[in-house]
């Protein structure tokens, strides 16, 4: 699941001209560590939803990889 999420993160980063990240962990912050702004986070949400069928931002703001994994885990 983490690897799939990392692939999605790198797709979004690639779409804005950023290099892929080699690894993500629970503590990785979406904005500060992955360089995502609100529009990137919208794209991230849509891509996660298309793979995992979960809208991770549905119930409010999500800040870290751990929070995304929790949301995906909850609904699976």
């Amino acid at each position: 699941m983490v690897q799939e999420l990392q692939n999605i993160v790198n797709t979004v980063r690639g779409n804005k001209g950023l290099d892929p990240v080699a690894a993500i962990g629970d503590e990785t912050r979406l904005r500060e560590d992955l360089g995502m702004d609100s529009l990137d986070l919208a794209e991230l949400t849509v891509r996660i939803e298309s793979v995992f069928q979960v809208d991770v931002f549905e119930d409010g703001v999500v800040n870290t990889v751990e929070e995304i994994l929790a949301k995906i885990g909850e609904k699976k």
């Binding site: 919208a42 794209e43 949400t45 298309s50």
Partner: peptide, 9 residues
């Protein structure tokens, strides 16, 4: 519509 466009770029 916007979400759909983001997915398909």
């Amino acid at each position: 519509v916007i979400r759909h466009a983001l997915l398909h770029r």
